[in-house]
Write a protein that binds this DNA or RNA. Structure first.
Lengths: 229, 229
DNA sequence: TATCGCCTTAACAATTCCTTAATAGGCAGG
DNA sequence: CCTGCCTATTAAGGAATTGTTAAGGCGATA
């Protein structure tokens, strides 16, 4: 119970009512909340407060959310901070631009408190299991996108079934690191599922079939790794 | 986009003089006004009238403002409606509960017409800048129009029932993003409605029947997405 | 009140995905 | 060149998820 430190959330929006709405709901959930009304304040607060999560409106006076996100992402001490955009329309600032500056997710306005809260706790749940769980990974010609569960390879989009996707995503999260089959089973299948280690091989095969043989390397007697360069 | 349709305001209060005062002032400002005397009426009116703004007294007979607010907020077609509480200072039913059920602002009684009017016009000004939710989405051959609850597909117009429409609209708002069945239930059905997750499947089926199978993709083990490109 | 359309649920069919097992292939050491 | 150990590949059965249909209930409307 008590060993979990309070998660810190920074909420950034230029509309007072929205700030209050979010602050109230987040605090009710036990988060430590601070607010900022524009991009500059957001960057300042982030520097001092070191939030675990930043909810960031895109359209703001002085400095918009995209630029603020870029600056926050540039702080090394905040590499593990989640950044989630609040946006009135998906198209308005394309999802692409948001991901380009390092956002982890985006959520549509108008905000439904309860839906947002469950989304946030899901985010932290995922986080506590692993670190650095962004929704998108780009490596060379490869773009792995968790929000759409697809992989782009040289512009072509391929859709992977769940296990295959998770496998690729997990490997790509730690490039060049070798994982044993048991590691992979533990992390992707879970600790209470008992399947043979060879099952991993079959999935690896299918992933290779779809993205090519160049990305995943076999390390004989050890396991597999996603290779960079 | 320049033609601004008349903004619709629903005023809810159990005191006749206050209703008249507000109605008079609002109509002078050019708003389209309707009134209701209690929570039930408010919900009924909201359902039919689709106001852009609801001014809601908190203390009322039959159904109080907070409960009415909750019910209005549960209607997906009114997600863009502002809800502002009118509250006497003494009423301890504080802003807390109000924000909790999705209010956008609250205003203290006694009401000063001039101040209220400027507050309202500020609200709409902000609205036109931000939640610029053109209630129409165009994607390729598809035009999704919220004002008429219809979808044009290759010129042919199809009319969808409410749930089907909301489902399509919600998915199309975030193209390529996968939503779990629970996400969809939270956002379209509301957080306090309990229906089985499989219900979503049936609606998906019906939407596909009407617009074709190409627009909504199943991501097995995850959910559904509207696909672009 | 009768009718109609919509929503939900349940049941069964269809499909996709996962796992396993069996076989083939490759590499190192003897 | 053979042997042992590991991985690659394929196919098939089973498990899990989704597709589809139909029936009942509810509410709106005439």
């Amino acid at each position: 119970m008590g060993n979990k430190p309070t998660q810190k959330v920074l909420v950034v929006d230029d509309e007072e009512p929205i700030l209050e709405l979010l602050k109230y709901n987040l605090e009710k959930q036990g988060y430590d909340v601070r607010t900022a009304a524009d991009g500059y304040q957001a960057v300042e607060q982030a520097k001092k407060f070191h939030p675990d999560l930043v909810l960031l409106d895109i359209m703001m006076p002085k400095m918009d959310g995209v630029e603020a996100c870029r600056q926050i992402r540039a702080m090394p001490e905040l590499v593990n901070t989640f950044i989630v955009f609040l946006t009135a329309r998906a198209e308005e600032y394309s999802e692409v631009a948001a991901f380009d500056v390092g956002a982890d997710d985006y959520i549509l306005k108008p905000i439904k408190p309860r839906a947002l809260m469950s989304r946030i706790s899901a985010l932290f749940r995922r986080d506590s299991k692993k670190k650095n769980t962004s929704s998108q990974i780009k490596i060379g010609e490869l773009v792995i996108d968790r929000t759409s569960y697809t992989v782009q390879i040289k512009g072509k989009e391929v859709s992977l079934p769940k296990k295959e996707f998770e496998l690729l995503f997990f490997l790509a999260q730690s490039p060049n690191k070798v994982f044993s089959r048991d590691d992979l089973l533990q992390n992707i299948w879970g600790s209470d599922v008992y399947v043979l280690a060879r099952t991993v091989d079959v999935h690896i095969r299918k992933v290779r079939e779809k993205i090519g043989d160049d990305y995943i390397t076999t390390v004989k007697g050890v396991g597999y790794k996603f290779n960079l360069g």
